[in-house]
Design a protein around this nucleic acid. Sequence first.
DNA 1: AAATTATCCTACAAAATTAGTAGGCTTTAT
DNA 2: ATAAAGCCTACTAATTTTGTAGGATAATTT
Lengths: 136, 136
Amino acid sequence: MLSKKTQYAFRALVHLAENYGKEPVKISTISIQQKIPLKFLEHILNDLKKAEMLESKKGKGGGYTLKVSPKKLNLATVIRIINGPIALLPCVSLNFYEKCIDCDEKTCGMRKMMLIARDATLKVLETKTLQDMMDE
Amino acid sequence: MLSKKTQYAFRALVHLAENYGKEPVKISTISIQQKIPLKFLEHILNDLKKAEMLESKKGKGGGYTLKVSPKKLNLATVIRIINGPIALLPCVSLNFYEKCIDCDEKTCGMRKMMLIARDATLKVLETKTLQDMMDE
DNA sequence: AAATTATCCTACAAAATTAGTAGGCTTTAT
DNA sequence: ATAAAGCCTACTAATTTTGTAGGATAATTT
């Protein structure tokens, strides 16, 4: 399951996507309209910024803007930044790989199955974009 | 990600699957051979038993046996019992549904995307069985 | 019947993660 | 200069995960 933080992140991103190309949006505006705790949202937007997904501007008239087109922002990328691995086991994660203890990867059946599951999930999450979320 | 408990569960189930149709296997045997903390494993096997997946016998010569054929035990079922929901959001979970707050399900784009992701993941996890894990 | 061997049950505890707050610092526009 | 925004570090509270402890219960053997 996605963490609450990740759900907040998606809501905020959709909000910013709706203002794509326009003036920056303040944290406080997003916080109120999307009902996300302000201080918590601060962290989330900062994480997204560090991941090059957003741009920010300080001072009056400042706020956040989406750096990339909503069409080019796929859901897997967001999840990885805020939520972590998408795979069901660390040993089949592309971006957060960790070796299992006491398990030979070549012969581990659990791993093989989770690889197939991962690929199926990723095929969706890497294809669908923020834009797809908005269109609905 | 699957919890450690779920990984333990799968290991234990594969162990029991290898002894399907034979004599019961003791918790302590599985604990040692699969390197799973004994007392923790007790809980896990009990959970699986309550879910009608295992049978148990007390006293000397006792232990656990798989109740169903490994071919008929799909991975989604196991994950749901030990790990919980497979879906990425509670509002798209088939077995652990919960309504989101401040969200109209008919128009929520996030939900639509997560529905598609869920279906893709489930198609694998509900098709693949314990037997498939063993065969590898 | 008593002893042994195994699961079953309830309660607890430690560790890790998630969710959120507090408060001051820095930058920018007016 | 001052006000309005984000930036940064640290802390706290709540929840979940990962176990442990110890006795109760049931079956088997002697």
